[in-house]
């Protein structure tokens, strides 16, 4: 029934002839002699990257399918991808623009509607990627326990899903920017660069919170608060430059180099202020993208073999 009997079972298996463990040979050594490998070992980094690349079709299809399935039960369907951020922007416009009077402050470029919506759309992209990433492993345990694939596919697919949604939001954003009287400039050619950098950052962040969320479920309760604090600190509905005058330099600096604020600044420079992003903005945006991606990816990969346990 217990250990002795399973040893008996081994002995029985051993009686079968052919290749059997030799006397005194451990099963591990026996397995090695026959070239068997541990079935759950973390692949080396280059192998892992290659496996991810091989799974690209799965990642894309999974992201698309999730997007399709998400709104399949609502009447307006895919339209919600655009309506939700617009409704959010409308609430903020009412609260911060009208009631708290940010609308006519300097530093918003004289076009508060475009200023606000740009901020909301850009921040929402990061916010949703992080929220999705945190759940990407923990809510897909059954998938992880059923099939083999590099687990980083999941946070990757969730980030991609948000990127697909952003496509719609960007179209609306650009329409609003044009309607509110901003001209089309050559700077708009940099929009894909801005989105690429932000996507890389989001991916890194999603990978990081995916690992944390996989083992500490409480993160899902905590994250919304963290993200809301981040939202208020990132100058989505006010100009950090103007609003923080008189505060300690260090605090102002921290607010301005925070990744969300940097990506918002980058996009506003292109769409509203019609100026090339400053060197500081460039450096901040690239720095966060590269840093988050490398750190997030390594951090996620290091726990690759543990994700099934939940």
């Amino acid at each position: 029934m217990s250990q002795p009997e399973s040893a008996v079972a081994d002995a029985q298996a051993g009686d079968r002839g052919g290749a059997t463990p030799m006397k005194g040979e451990s099963l591990a050594a026996f397995a090695e002699r026959h070239g068997l490998r541990r079935s759950i070992a973390r692949p080396a980094l280059p192998v892992y990257l290659r496996q991810l690349w091989q799974r690209r079709h799965f990642i894309v299809t999974y992201a698309t399918s999730r997007n399709l399935s998400k709104y399949s039960n609502s009447v307006l369907g895919q339209l919600w991808q655009v309506i939700t951020p617009l409704l959010n922007a409308a609430v903020y416009w009412l609260m911060f623009g009208l009631i708290l009077g940010q609308k006519d402050k300097p530093g918003v470029g004289g076009n508060y509607t475009a200023f606000l919506i740009t901020g909301v759309m850009v921040f929402t992209f990061t916010q949703r990627s992080v929220l999705g990433g945190a759940k990407s492993v923990s809510s897909n345990l059954s998938l992880i326990r059923a099939l083999h694939f590099p687990r980083a596919s999941l946070p990757l697919a969730y980030t991609l899903q948000e990127l697909q949604q952003l496509g719609w939001s960007m179209a609306v954003l650009i329409a609003i920017v044009l309607v509110t009287g901003e001209p089309v400039t050559w700077l708009w050619l940099l929009i894909p660069v801005a989105l690429l950098l932000q996507t890389l950052f989001n991916l890194g962040a999603a990978l990081m919170v995916a690992r944390i969320g996989a083992f500490v479920r409480d993160v899902n309760q905590l994250l919304p608060f963290a993200l809301r604090t981040w939202l208020y600190a990132s100058g989505v509905f006010y100009s950090i430059q103007e609003q923080t005058k008189g505060l300690p330099e260090l605090l102002r600096w921290v607010l301005e180099v925070n990744p969300a604020a940097a990506y918002i600044q980058f996009m506003r420079d292109l769409l509203i202020f019609e100026q090339a992003p400053s060197a500081v903005t460039w450096i901040t945006c690239v720095f966060w993208a590269v840093c988050a991606l490398i750190v997030g990816f390594l951090y996620f990969w290091l726990a690759e073999e543990k994700y099934g346990r939940g």
């Binding site: 099963l27 591990a28 397995a31 090695e32 026959h34 070239g35 068997l36 490998r37 541990r38 079935s39 759950i40 999974y62 399918s65 999730r66 399709l68 399935s69 399949s72 039960n73 897909n140 059954s142 998938l143 992880i144 326990r145 059923a146 099939l147 083999h148 073999e305 543990k306 099934g308 346990r309």
Partner: peptide, 30 residues
């Protein structure tokens, strides 16, 4: 199949064992 990490001990295999099960990946709304 290598899908649940062992708490103790090990599983050694030749090639990649696969579980006949794809249910978890499917989405009922699609």
């Amino acid at each position: 199949a290598g899908l649940l990490p062992p708490t103790k001990g090990a599983v050694y295999t030749d090639g990649q064992p696969s579980l006949l099960g794809v249910n978890a990946a499917l989405m009922k709304d699609l």
